[in-house]
Design a protein around this nucleic acid. Structure first.
Lengths: 220, 220
DNA sequence: GAGGAAGTGGAGAACTGCTCTCAAGTTTCT
DNA sequence: AGAAACTTGAGAGCAGTTCTCCACTTCCTC
């Protein structure tokens, strides 16, 4: 839908709109949201002015681009929560959502830092937390997840792995999986009376937002 | 030692040199190495020009400042390697070195990113790896550490926790300990035949340097 | 206590890198 | 063909660095 019930764009304009979106997807995926619009325009073979004619500012472009992608992460969370085996659901969510983030730095930034983007994107983000809560709860009931771990730990773990991803993306793009496995071993409820309880309390949901807002990915 | 065997600084100059170093320590600790020299000069109650008269450029100032601090981290590694209980040594190293890093963002940056600073600092950094290798080896022999974990995992884990620290420093400065505990539970050799082997290989020492060099802390 | 060397301050030069604008030229549509 | 829509890219404006320069001040020595 070109715009909301207004006259359709001219043929060339519509074509360029698509080019901008495609170029932005690629550039943001590779360089993160800090990429300049000049960069995107050049990659699309257009002038910067054209980008600004179509999208009033950078945030609107980001919004248009990530509304759908963030929705797919929310869907992942819902799918994970519906998984018959709660532990497998948890692993599924981490694996799949982080794989997406590894392939798209812009998405990672939108999901984690919460900074950029407007209403649409925020709405998508808010769909994610509830299924994760029920996922964690089911895992607790099934006795497969340490009792002292909460749903708020999930974004924090994603943040840590996301930072590692940024650093290792050119050297060892799959390295984050190694530390995910390590963390999952730490999350799993211990067989015998093994684990000591964690000595530091988890964040509350509001603090999670604050911490994510303070996070910025590294550049490259 | 004011300078190397040259005529001593004038009294006021020596006093200002100390002020600069003190101010730099505080500012770098709080804001990281990206803090501008203007900021440091203002905090020292001096002009920028004075800073540049004493230190030819920013890197020299950083070198002068962190030579000692990085040495103390190396000493920590040596102390850890000498610990009678290898597991306790590992926990000791993580706990102490990360506590230092939590209190000093500049130090964290010097240790992890390797970018800034010259010869002196690099030399200090190179003192750290060997004791960590023997620490890990002893833990393997004692059967307390997963066999598929290597010394190269230590800086990567520090990097992840370091990123979390940057994000949570204002909201929950001790939060990193929670995830350190989780990771330590993942690192410990499993009691019964519990753990699956890690599916992703560790980095080799050269790659570690490359990854660290790509890492930049987030701003605040 | 006078004179020269050493030291100081801070505006600003030079750079980088970003978002966003606008006047002049081009394309599409009717 | 004419009007409206669209495109272009240099550059304005902003912010943030690192580092320079020189008129001025302070210290030390004789």
């Amino acid at each position: 839908m070109p715009t909301t019930a207004e006259r359709p764009l001219r043929k060339d304009a519509e074509r360029n709109r698509r080019r901008i979106l495609d170029a932005a997807r690629e550039v943001f995926a590779e360089h993160g949201l800090d990429a300049g619009l000049d960069h995107i325009a050049r990659h699309a073979g257009l002038g910067v002015g054209t980008v600004y004619r179509r999208f009033p500012d950078k945030d609107k472009l980001i919004d248009a681009l990530f509304e759908e992608r963030i929705g797919s992460i929310a869907a992942l969370a819902e799918e994970a929560a519906a998984h018959e085996d709660p532990w497998a659901g948890l692993v599924f969510f981490f694996d799949r959502s982080l794989t997406e983030q590894a392939a798209d730095r812009g998405l990672k930034q939108i999901l984690l830092s919460g900074a950029r983007g407007c209403a649409q994107v925020s709405a998508g983000r808010e769909r994610i937390a509830p299924p994760l809560r029920s996922l964690v709860e089911r895992a607790h009931v099934a006795g497969v997840l340490r009792q002292d771990v909460t749903a708020q730990d999930i974004p924090m773990i994603s943040l840590m792995l996301g930072s590692l991803m940024d650093a290792s993306r050119d050297t060892a793009p799959e390295l984050w999986r190694r530390y995910l496995e390590l963390l999952l071993d730490g999350l799993r409820a211990g067989g015998p009376g093994s684990r000591e309880p964690l000595t530091v309390a988890p964040l509350d949901p509001v603090a999670v937002q604050t911490v994510l807002a303070a996070w910025k990915p590294c550049r490259a």
